[in-house]
Structure formats: C-alpha cells, structure tokens
Nucleic acid binder design. Structure first.
Length: 246
DNA sequence: AAGGTACGCAACCGCATAAAT
DNA sequence: CATTTATGCGGTTGCGTACCT
C-alpha cells in the first residue's frame, strides 16, 4: 500500500486527562522542536498519546499566550457578533480573539452566550440590563473589531513559545500535588493512569522528591515567564486601547 | 451535614480537507 | 493519479466542582 505511514499504534494510546508529567514532557518537546510535526511527538517523547491528542492538548491548554477564565464584555461582543456572521466556525471566530482557543470560545458560547441570547430574545422589550449592554457592545465591536483584532494567525504570539504564567504555574501546581503521591494515583479512574507513568517517564521526572523541575526545564520556564511579562505588558496597552474604543 | 442537581471545562469522536507516498 | 494518513475543526460527552434544597 502506498500512502503515509501510520502516526501511532492505536492499541497502546492512553486516553483521559493529561497528567502534569505528560504536560511537561509535551511542553519540553515543543519548546525544543516547535509545534507542527505532531506525528513525531509521541514517537520522540515516549508519550503514550495519539498525535491528535498531543495537538489538542497543546492548542487548547499549553500553548503560549492563552488567556483563560473570565471573558470580558468586549470579548463577548466579538464572539456574539462573529457567531452571527460566521456561524459555528469557532476557529474563525477565535482568530478575532488570538488569546482564546476555539474550544474555549465554543464552550463559552454553549454554556453562557447561547443562554444569554435566548433570554434576550424571549424578552425583546427588555431594553435595560446587562443584555442590552452586551448587544450594544456587540454592535460597536462588530464594526471595529476587524480593525482592532484583524484575523490573526496564531503566529502573532506563538513563535516565542512563551507559555503563560497561569499555564506554567498550574503545571507546577499539579506537579507538586501529584508528585509526592504518584503511587496512589493508580485508581484514578483513568485505568492505568498515574501508576504506569512512573515507569514510563522515569528519565523525565528527574527529581520527583525535591519538587523542583529538572535544571534544563527550569531554565526554559524562566525564559518563558520573562517573555510572558512582555506579552502581558502588550496586552495592557491593548486593553487601554479597547476601553478607549468602547 | 448530606444528597441531588446544574454548571463548566477538558478531552474524545467523527468528518472534511490537505499532504505525502 | 490513487491511496492512505495527518491535520484541523466542530459536535458531543464525561467528570469534577459549585450550588441548592
């Protein structure tokens, strides 16, 4: 048969939630090689994950510059407007909010905005309250957002591979929590989860007892954090600009 | 305080398209 | 050019947690 060789052996791939150890392995690899060649990731890192799963984890959670948590009214407005224009093309909508992932936007739409819009539509006469605010902002945002946030390829922030402070700190938080009791995680619902990792990633978890990252990784993290500070500064400037526009 | 329910998020699944052989 | 897989995307599900009764 011609064609490409298969990316991974589907019989041995691990599923379920990612562990901090896996995250670190993935981040370290991408830091070194850059994102893109996903099929080489499981092969070269030893991760028992499908390349697809690695890509998803990276783009939705570990990618540099990702902003998590509260959506601002401005962001809401852009999402609502673009959803109206583009439909459920979340990747396209996400290009207007470079620091949000399509998955995040999709989740937010399904859990919050859909409900909000429904409420608004069932009470068309209600011209007061937060919904009105949202939709007003939406209309404003609609006309200006392509200028303010032109559809940017992820390249606008990605090339630095700087991971967000939140993501990294969360990573280490998870690491600290799980490291001392890794042995107890076997029954973690995800059959064969933490337990097998101990063996698989022994060479990666160089010093599990000390709660410190391996030296090389800590250097990488340090440089990421420094870069993140620069990104945050830039974002601050953007917020000022945004507020001026609204 | 305990049990039940709703909510939010991470991850998986399946499909479409692009790319490699 | 045909075949096969990688990649990207949208829909959906399952789990953990917060909130309510």
């Amino acid at each position: 048969m011609g064609g490409r060789p298969p990316c991974c052996d589907n019989t041995t791939v691990k599923k379920g939630p990612w562990t901090p150890e896996e995250d670190i392995v993935l981040v370290s690899y991408i830091q070194e090689h850059g994102p893109g060649n996903w099929r080489s990731v499981p092969a070269n890192t030893g991760l028992m994950r499908c390349s697809k799963s690695c890509r998803l984890r990276w783009t939705n959670y570990l990618r540099p510059g990702i902003k998590r948590g509260h959506f601002t009214p401005q962001e809401e407005a852009i999402i609502i407007r673009q959803q109206g224009l583009l439909g459920n093309r979340w990747a396209a909508i996400a290009s207007y909010l470079p620091r949000r992932t399509d998955n995040d936007i999709k989740n937010y739409w399904n859990t919050h905005l859909k409900k909000k819009l429904k409420q608004f539509q069932t009470a068309p006469g209600s011209s007061s309250g937060s919904h009105r605010h949202t939709l007003t902002a939406c209309n404003n945002g609609a006309t200006m957002c392509p200028d303010l946030h032109p559809p940017l390829p992820t390249s606008c922030c990605a090339p630095t591979y700087a991971s967000s402070t939140e993501n990294i700190s969360r990573l280490w938080e998870g690491w600290m929590k799980s490291a001392p009791k890794l042995g107890n995680r076997a029954g973690d619902g995800d059959g064969g989860g933490g337990g097998e990792l101990q063996g698989s990633y022994g060479e990666v978890r160089q010093d599990p007892e000390s709660n410190h990252p391996p030296p090389q990784q800590s250097l990488l993290l340090e440089s990421w954090l420094l870069e993140e500070a620069a990104v945050a500064e830039a974002e601050g400037l953007m917020d000022v600009y945004t507020h001026a526009m609204f």
